[in-house]
């Protein structure tokens, strides 16, 4: 069961959104690959809380955000290092650097948990932003469901450790995950489509949301057909403006 519905919306919402986003939201409350359901829901809650943090506000204003030390204003549901991850991603993601990622891993957030946390944060941000956009309240947090994380690890020989800070699946290998995530083969494996692949269920959850809110890869580059109520140019204008505000070069 999902606490996300669009019943309160004052306008018709596309059927695929009505179907997909409640699934994505409910999955936040389920045990993940490396995180328990309680931790996943706590990450979502902290994501919403981060904008109220004084330390993050101070860091945002400075030219050297890694020089400002202090304690985050947090909900107290997560250990300090996980709070640091959530707050940095929420409030200043455009200035994240590799040495910070390594410091997080060294301080007790394994890269597997880090990638899963990024997925939870991103799905929370995406759904909350969409709700604000259409004029409904962001949904209640999911109730954590019982169960243990699956711990299903992608074999090391499937991972590329040179592309990004975090490992990603190597698209050039012929394997079931590659066939699922890059059905068009390595040339279609855009870096963003590789980003969360080291935790496959996180990848699946995130791309269910992305393919619904945006377009799939084929639609994205098919300029001869308009798939949405706004044109490709209008879509990319909105995308570009949001990315500029977030200082995202990618």
């Amino acid at each position: 069961m999902s606490f996300l519905t669009f019943d309160a919306a004052s306008m018709p919402i596309r059927d695929d959104i009505v179907e997909a986003l409640p699934q994505v939201w409910a999955q936040i409350g389920e045990p993940g690959t490396w995180l328990t359901a309680e931790v996943r829901v706590a990450v979502a809650a902290e994501s919403r809380h981060a904008r109220h943090c004084a330390l993050c506000a101070e860091r945002k204003e400075t030219l050297s955000p890694y020089s400002v030390q202090g304690k985050h204003d947090s909900l107290g549901m997560l250990p300090a290092e996980k709070v640091e991850v959530v707050h940095r991603v929420m409030t200043d993601s455009g200035r994240i650097v590799e040495h910070w990622f390594q410091a997080m891993c060294d301080s007790g957030v394994p890269e597997t948990e880090y990638v899963e946390m990024i997925g939870v944060i991103a799905c929370t941000v995406g759904i909350d932003t969409f709700c604000r956009g259409i004029g409904i309240e962001p949904p209640r947090l999911p109730e954590p469901q019982p169960g243990e994380p699956s711990g299903k690890r992608v074999p090391e020989d499937q991972l590329n450790r040179d592309l990004a800070f975090a490992p990603t699946i190597r698209p050039e290998i012929d394997g079931p995950l590659q066939n699922e995530f890059f059905p068009g083969g390595p040339p279609t494996a855009a870096h963003i489509r590789r980003a969360l692949t080291s935790v496959p269920d996180t990848q699946r959850q995130f791309w269910l949301m992305v393919n619904t809110l945006y377009m799939n890869g084929l639609q994205m580059r098919d300029f001869s057909t308009e798939y949405r109520a706004i044109t490709h140019a209008q879509i990319e204008l909105v995308a570009g403006r949001v990315s500029a505000i977030n200082q995202c070069v990618y």
Partner: peptide
Amino acid sequence: MGAAALVDAAAVAANFNAIDRVADSIGIPL
């Protein structure tokens, strides 16, 4: 522009508010 355009514009903005964070947090290059 009408309601359908609003839904799609809000969806795209939401998508990129999320995807930007993934790109920067995982550190993928262009």
